[in-house]
Structures are given as C-alpha cells and as structure tokens.
Amino acid sequence: MTVYGFSPSGNCHKVRLLLEQLGRDYRWVEKRSDDGSTRTPEMLAKNPNGKVPFIELDDGRVLTESNAILHWLAEGTSFLPDDPWLRAQALSWMFFEQYSHEPYIAVARFICGWTPIDSPRRADLPRLRERGHQALAVMERHLSSQSWFSGDRYGIADIALFAYTCVADHGGIALERYPAIRDWLSRIERTPGFVPMSAPDPAARALIDQSA
C-alpha cells in the first residue's frame, strides 16, 4: 500500500506507527500539508478533501481519515479488542480524540509552529489551550485507574491519543500536572516497534520555541 502523509503531523504519524508495529510493508509519499501539496489536481482526484493521511491500495481503492485507517489496519489484530464492549470503548476514545482533543491540542501546535508570530490566529491560543487542558484532564482521570484506552492492552485508541498528546507542549500545553498521562506516554514509547514522530523543520521548531 501507499501512504500519503506529512511526517510532522500527528494524524499521519498514527498511521506510520501502527504500520511499523504491525510489521506491514508500505510506501510513504511525503506531502506537506502547509504548502498546497495536498490540493493538487492529482491529489484531489484521490482525496477530494485535500488532506493527508490517506492510503491507496494496489487496486486503486483509497481510504481517508486517520482513525478510520487505524481501525481498518487493526482489524483481526491485537490492536483492536475482540470483545464488542471493549471495541466500542476504544472507538469512543477515538471519537473523543477527533472531537474533544485534536481540534484544540493539534490546532494550538499548528498555530505556534506554522503561522507567523503576528498572525491573528494567535488570539485563539488561550481558548485552545484551555480546551486542550480540559481534554487532558479527562484522559488523566481515566488513566488514574486504567493503563490503556483500548481495553486491557495497548491498541489503536492509545495510538490515536498518543499522536498529539506527546507534542502538546509544542502548542504551549504543558503536561507537568498530568503524571498518569506522562506514565502512559512512557509505556507507549516502550512498546515493540515504536517509532517517534518526525520533528518539525527548523523554521517551525523556531516558531514553536518562541510561542510555547
């Protein structure tokens, strides 16, 4: 399969991490999401939404949306619970990630690293950081009594939530007050086949350092 993605993106890293931990063969095609590369006619013909990640199979089928890709890849593996209730719980946390977590933590990171210091979007940072901390508080409460978000073992809900939590500080959302989350991040980093997310390019990193 071919994966189209932007390496510093958490949503794209989710897919890469699971593929690596599954030991699957794939071809990675780098497409920056900040310079129009995902919205060329060729790319829009594959994914009209103009975003990455998405995967393309050898027969031409395309699957978009990071968490849908995780679910499809994990089917029949230990990364997705067999028990219907635990499977639904894992999906619940993946919906939480896309609705209550990623829109704040990931967007704060994007604004800090990929917009100019004088961008009017930076006025949104206090609200985004507040909502990001609200999401982290929900996660901290869960992790105070449970080791994982995918039932009784590591799985795709953990991968989905890991991607942007591990770089929350890039958006000025520090993790010092969340010991259970920090322990959970460390557990994930020790899982077999783990690969870290690619660092932002130097220009983005410099902006993050000024903003966060």
Rank of each mutant, 00 (worst) to 15 (best):
R32H: 14
P103Y: 02
T191R: 15
L22N: 08
D201V: 10
P84R: 14
L86G: 00
L70Q: 01
W72G: 00
L22V: 03
D152S: 13
K31W: 03
S147P: 01
L22C: 03
V107Q: 12
H133S: 08
E20Y: 04
F79L: 05
V107A: 05
Q21R: 14
F110D: 02
A137T: 15
A203Y: 11
D118H: 13
H13S: 09
F162R: 08
G50Q: 02
P116E: 10
A135V: 03
N67W: 10
W148N: 02
V52N: 05
P200M: 07
W28E: 11
H142Y: 04
P53C: 11
E97Y: 00
E102H: 05
A212F: 06
A88S: 15
E130C: 07
S7L: 09
I159A: 06
V29H: 10
R187W: 08
P53Y: 03
G193M: 04
Q89G: 01
A106V: 02
R127F: 10
S211T: 15
R141H: 15
T2L: 11
V62Y: 08
W114N: 14
S147T: 10
G5L: 13
E20T: 01
I159P: 07
L161A: 04
T40S: 12
P179V: 00
G155M: 10
R109W: 02
G5V: 05
W148T: 02
R205F: 05
Y164A: 02
E30C: 05
R32Y: 06
L18A: 10
R153D: 08
R122V: 08
H170W: 14
I111K: 10
N11Y: 14
S33F: 11
P48M: 12
F54V: 14
P8T: 07
G132M: 03
G60M: 10
A106T: 12
R27H: 13
G60W: 09
T77Q: 12
A123S: 15
M197D: 01
F6R: 01
H170E: 10
P81R: 00
G5E: 10
F54Q: 08
A160N: 02
R27M: 01
R87A: 13
P103S: 02
I111M: 04
L17C: 06
V62I: 15
I156K: 09
D58G: 08
C12F: 07
E102P: 01
I188Y: 05
L70I: 06
S78K: 07
F95D: 03
E75S: 12
P126G: 10
P41L: 06
S211M: 14
V167I: 15
G171Q: 02
A123W: 03
A168S: 11
G132I: 04
F194M: 06
R39W: 06
Y154W: 12
R121L: 14
P41S: 09
R87G: 05
L161R: 07
D58K: 12
W28V: 01
A74S: 08
F6Q: 13
W28P: 00
E189N: 03
R182T: 12
G113H: 01
R177I: 00
A106H: 04
N49E: 06
D152K: 13
A157Y: 09
V3W: 03
S145D: 11
Q210L: 15
E102V: 02
P126W: 08
K46D: 05
A108D: 01
A157S: 13
A163I: 03
W85G: 02
I159K: 11
D183L: 09
A88Y: 04
A174M: 07
E65W: 03
R131V: 08
E65P: 00
W28L: 14
A88L: 11
L185W: 00
R205G: 06
A90Y: 01
S119H: 06
